[in-house]
């Protein structure tokens, strides 16, 4: 296994007295898609925020090999500015990531996500699927080595969800690590290398996607 990009060592997270995660050990390696599954309240989103460094652990350590700016995030919220055009949104994130203003790169990434014809329209008028495509364009533009996805396909139509799955796989094949929270396990499993299942605030399963029995979870309301 390649050198892990992020390591969680006996990490616990509490909100007040309530434990959300307990004694989590986890490593995320490059060129790998890790599907994170579990029932509502299992701590999946909290796990992503701990990995991203957006939340400090209550106990344990989060170690990372990544430089600042090495983590990308795509979730329920799109992280875009509705009153800016698609192009202006991407130009802003270019500046924030220390990249020179490059209109050609912006145009190219908008074409990749199928928004080239909407580059100069305000992002606020986009449908949910288009907004998620723009958000993915932001991720492509900043080329993170670790991509965290928190149910990115929620609200997408089936065709957009298939497209998103293909793009996520392409990101990992290009060398990035992807940690992907999903409830649509049956559909998403094929695009993943590994599954981490959270239950009872702990890791209940951590192994290859090929050996994961998604059907058994259906009765638990996980998928």
């Amino acid at each position: 296994m390649a050198q892990a990009l992020v390591r969680l060592r006996r990490v616990s997270r509490f909100y007040g007295e309530r434990a959300v995660l307990k004694n989590i050990d986890l490593e995320l390696a490059p060129a790998q898609v890790t599907l994170v599954v579990g029932p509502n309240g299992a701590g999946k989103s909290t796990l992503l925020r701990l990995v991203a460094g957006l939340l400090p652990p209550s106990e344990g350590e989060v170690e990372t090999e990544l430089p600042p700016g090495g983590i990308g995030y795509l979730g329920h919220k799109t992280l875009i500015y509705p009153k800016l055009t698609a192009r202006a949104n991407l130009a802003f994130w270019q500046s924030m990531f220390g990249q020179p203003r490059d209109d050609a790169a912006v145009t190219a990434v908008l074409s990749r996500v199928g928004l080239a014809g909407f580059a100069d329209e305000e992002a606020g008028v986009f449908s949910r699927g288009m907004s998620q495509r723009l958000s993915l364009a932001r991720v492509f533009l900043t080329a993170p080595r670790l991509l965290l996805l928190d149910e990115p396909a929620s609200g997408l139509d089936p065709a957009s969800a298939v497209w998103l799955r293909r793009e996520i796989r392409a990101v990992a094949d290009a060398g990035a690590s992807v940690a992907w929270v999903s409830h649509n396990i049956a559909a998403d499993l094929a695009a993943c290398d590994r599954v981490v299942r959270l239950d009872g605030h702990r890791v209940a399963y951590d192994g290859p996607a090929a050996g994961f029995d998604a059907a058994a979870l259906a009765g638990e309301g996980v998928c």
Binding site: P67, P68, G69, G75, L79, F97
Partner: peptide, 11 residues
Amino acid sequence: EGARLGLLLSP
């Protein structure tokens, strides 16, 4: 739209 997370994750 949660852009704060993007700002915090930027370098």
